[in-house]
Design a protein around this nucleic acid. Structure first.
Lengths: 203, 203, 203, 203
DNA sequence: TATGAATGAGTGTTCATTCAT
DNA sequence: GATGAATGAACACTCATTCAT
């Protein structure tokens, strides 16, 4: 039974920062903007965060760890690389559609991190992308996929899916599960997956 | 016979801003950073620009106008929508690979513009994307393409190609002309172009 | 029993600005000058003010409102226009002698205000001057005063009295109450007030 | 026969500065404002002036010297202190009405001068005011004037006349010669001049 | 004579952050 | 917890002035 619980101050700060960093960028967002959005004084903010950069790093790490865990779970025990990729794409698209703020921050604000923090975040992102690389490489090896430059193709598909966070609206024409399927189809065909090619989309 | 001509101060400012806006973002770049990069005092900068925002807007407009002109020229007189899309993708990829700074600024810094300027820039971008939309829609109508959600697919492919600016290096394994072809192949297969599907990539 | 109370920071800012605007003018005073005089950093200043112009406007409005209130009180219920003018002159002179900074700012810095703010300040000043105009016009009507151009004369007398703020010193030869009387005499005689003419000053 | 002679650049600079210093104040006027008003580049300005402050000082000195010369000529050989004062007031008012820019700069911008230059300008002003002081003192001695504090009265009358520069318009109701007479009348009555008192103004 | 280019110092204002209460 | 007060450093931008051409 859902109770109308007011989120904690800490949570309000997190959400405020996420929203603003996503909308205006890290450098375009002032600590006072965050405070106002979280309905706190800027001094009070510092009860719930370290520096502004640590706040950003925390948000990014958290989002990436959640995505990585979800993706690992989604492909665990699945042998077929085609199915693995399908699930990875669907999860990626769904996540970018449902949490556009988190994903936009992750995708766009890495450069705002100090080198030290950046390395940690990039390592997480690399771990995540490795799941994609493994699925693609396995598919190429098994003959399910046919692509000249698997690494390039992986980057292309990741970017393609990232884009969802920039325009998806829950009020749009295509429902989210159909959207995820659509993207999976795009990806598989792009990868030269023969079965997908046969039954190319048709109204 | 190429003469070693030192670029003008005005040009140095333009290039400095482009490089820094692309690397650190508009809000992450100080006017003093630009000045230093252009080997000028920050006061001298203002001989060659209006405000910092006008500098950004000028760069974006210029890049978009050039891209739009090149794309219009590339598809002019070409009836086959498949060929049109192939050329658009190739041009887009090539441009993003060769002028990554310009394209990253165009793709990422729109939100830094004031509403008024933003409108003008977005209009240019829309004009450009319309060329993609026309090629895709024509292809769908002619039966050359098969995709359930052409508008979504267009966005997906554009984002896919934008990504090139983030990672391409001229010292990479894939030469640029091959890269452009590769992306064209990805796009056409994703669009369900039957011929492309038949001869799926294979070494 | 007077306690040695240190004025608040807000009050220190107000006084510092008043002193400096009066001495060096609004445009001749830097925000850092104000900060130094108020023993604060220039950043701290902004806890107690909006913009520099709003600081000026606030000071002017406050001074004018106080003067207007005092003048209204001074003439309230006084029927005789001669007595009214005498009181207005005495109050004006006394105020300019005691608060030379406030009055100099009010008299000299109107042009530094933005049109919008200027209008509000000028309206206050006009309200105040109307008290003078009424006294003079009533006196002319009653035959107590005789002057060809009452409006011009009003301006002349106001300027005459404003001057006090520029040179009066409490260590000067003429005590303030005598000074006020002296100016009242000058004004009444200038206005052709017959009684004042009869007993023209003589030691 | 008047020829339509375009004023020299030097003269244009002088006039531009005068106009702007009078309107916006010395510190409120930028050297680029002057340049624009004079239709020159700001660099070219420096062919016709030293520093900005020297430009101001020159304008003030010139205006004061001309006023001093005119005043000296006006009272030369006139024995009657009443007549001397009458002429001084008339000249002062006329000058402030006809050259409001010059006189406003002289009256308001002394504080913008460096101490050294200020001393020279103040000396000129003192020389000028001495003519007033002599007329008043002579009048008091001769019994033509009756005022308790001649020095104070002199300041009061000077300020009164300075005000003309702030509001006089050639399109106003009172023609300039009448205005000068009016002010002379105000001054003489304020000074307790018995004859003026007798024939107090009456329509 | 005229000016575009150039700049060190300064403008008003905002920044992220700290700390005493 | 929460915040008003405080600040050094930085922000984008303008200043008066110089100089090579």
């Amino acid at each position: 039974m859902a109770v109308n619980t007011e989120p904690t101050s800490r949570e309000r700060v997190r959400r405020a920062a996420l929203k603003l960093f996503a909308t205006k960028g890290f450098h375009g967002t002032g600590i006072r903007d965050v405070a106002q959005e979280a309905r706190l004084s800027s001094a009070s903010l510092y009860h719930y965060m370290g520096t502004k950069e640590e706040l950003l790093a925390g948000l990014m790490r958290e989002a990436l760890e959640r995505l990585l865990a979800a993706a690992s779970a989604a492909v665990a025990g699945v042998d077929d690389p085609v199915e693995r990729l399908r699930r990875l794409v669907a999860l990626h698209v769904t996540t970018h559609a449902r949490q556009p703020d988190e994903t936009r921050v992750v995708d766009n604000e890495v450069r705002a991190l100090s080198p030290r923090t950046r390395r940690a975040v990039v390592r997480l992102r690399d771990d995540y992308e490795r799941l994609w690389a493994e699925a693609i490489d396995d598919g190429v090896r098994s003959g399910a996929f046919a692509t000249d430059h698997p690494a390039v193709t992986r980057l292309a598909l990741l970017e393609m899916c990232n884009g969802v966070a920039r325009w998806y609206s829950p009020r749009g024409a295509v429902p989210l599960d159909r959207l995820a399927e659509h993207y999976a189809g795009l990806a598989l065909r792009a990868l030269g997956h023969t079965e997908s090619l046969a039954r190319a989309e048709r109204p």
